[in-house]
């Protein structure tokens, strides 16, 4: 419960800090924050374009939130098992790219998901293996792999998979895309995130895995005190490897629901910032899978709503990233505070 209070405190302080900046810029913070909610389909906008209303906005909000849930779960699982996986971006990218490639051959949604999971899991396992085999710190290896993967994927896209107009990768074929875009319902055009139910189920499953299984018990013990885990007769290396594999697989799911769902294509030359935002989300959610759902909901409001906010208030959308960054900072502080408070 204390964790929950601290998370709320982090959010409130960040929102106040953001409001302060908006106010200094001569904008109305309340209106700007309302725009965030409006852009996320949680509040009525002044007017809507044809075939759109609050519900269509909310559906595309869910579409944006789905990969965020997976990404934050990836970070959370790794942290619980004693790893700081900051390579979620790279793992997302490799998963997304492999799935894109495979969908050229076999356009199947199931296959996209399976391939994404495998690709992410392999990278995660590599990071875990490097740590116990060569004692390479996972922070270093995962961030290095981010660059490696990003340039590799960029090279491949630019060489033979580029859409010359958009300068992005070609779009994934609709029958393999994890988001049904422009679905006609009544007189509306909806985006339906097919992976969203999977994200919720995954979070619930992970919660069960952590709290109710011997593996979860081992994972937490290894994460909190490897020496004690070893003394308890646990196979520390194997458990670490499994943890990183699961973390990678979740990042892979984030990757496919992002690059083969929310976005249908991959932008070369950059890693998705979601992989880093996910750290904030996970910390905010107390590294608890269910907490991650709520934290993703919140952070997605800020990131998704920022587009609408920037057009209405004439502010740079980066202000939203700034608020997210504040939350990360305060959430990290509160993680520290809660640990200190226990001593």
């Amino acid at each position: 419960m204390k964790k929950f209070t601290l998370s709320c405190l982090a959010i409130i302080i960040s929102l106040i800090a953001g409001a302060l900046i908006l106010w200094l810029m001569g904008k109305d913070p309340v209106a700007a924050y309302m725009n965030l909610l409006q852009g996320s389909g949680l509040m009525q906008k002044v007017k809507y374009a044809g075939r759109q209303n609050m519900f269509t906005d909310f559906m595309s909000f869910i579409d944006a939130m789905t990969p965020m849930i997976f990404a934050s779960l990836s970070v959370a699982i790794a942290l619980r098992g004693g790893f700081f996986n900051i390579g979620v971006s790279g793992q997302m990218m490799i998963a997304g790219f492999t799935a894109h490639m495979l969908s050229l051959v076999v356009p199947s949604r199931i296959l996209v998901i399976v391939v994404g999971v495998i690709a992410g899991a392999l990278v995660g396992a590599l990071i875990g293996w490097m740590r116990y085999r060569f004692n390479v710190n996972e922070v270093v290896s995962s961030i290095m792999l981010n660059s490696t993967i990003m340039y590799l994927v960029t090279f491949c896209i630019n060489t033979f998979y580029v859409n010359p107009v958009s300068r992005q990768s070609k779009s994934i074929i609709e029958s393999a895309r994890l988001t049904i875009s422009g679905f006609r319902w009544e007189n509306l055009k909806l985006d339906i995130a097919l992976a969203f139910p999977l994200a919720i189920i995954t979070a619930m499953f992970l919660q069960w895995l952590i709290e109710r299984t011997t593996y979860g018990y081992e994972m937490k013990a290894v994460g909190l005190s490897p020496k004690a885990a070893y003394y308890a007769g646990m196979k520390v290396n194997r458990i670490s490897l499994i943890t990183m594999t699961i973390s990678g697989a979740l990042a892979g799911l984030a990757g496919v629901s992002y690059f083969c769902g929310y976005y249908a294509s991959i932008q070369p030359g950059t890693t998705p910032s979601m992989g880093f935002d996910a750290i904030a989300v996970s910390l905010l959610g107390g590294n608890n899978p269910i907490g991650c759902i709520f934290a993703s909901f919140l952070i997605t409001i800020i990131s998704k709503g920022s587009v609408y906010m920037s057009s209405r208030q004439n502010i740079e959308p980066e202000i939203a990233s700034l608020i997210t960054a504040f939350i990360l900072t305060f959430a990290a502080c509160s993680a520290f505070l809660s640990r200190k408070g226990r001593k």
Binding site: T214, K220, A221, S225, A228, Y231, G233
Partner: peptide, 20 residues
């Protein structure tokens, strides 16, 4: 560092070597 997982609860520490 060895005998206990300090951030576990008492309840979780007691079966540390028999949980499985």
């Amino acid at each position: 560092n060895v005998g206990l997982v300090l951030d576990f609860t008492l309840r979780d520490n007691l079966p540390l070597r028999q949980y499985y």
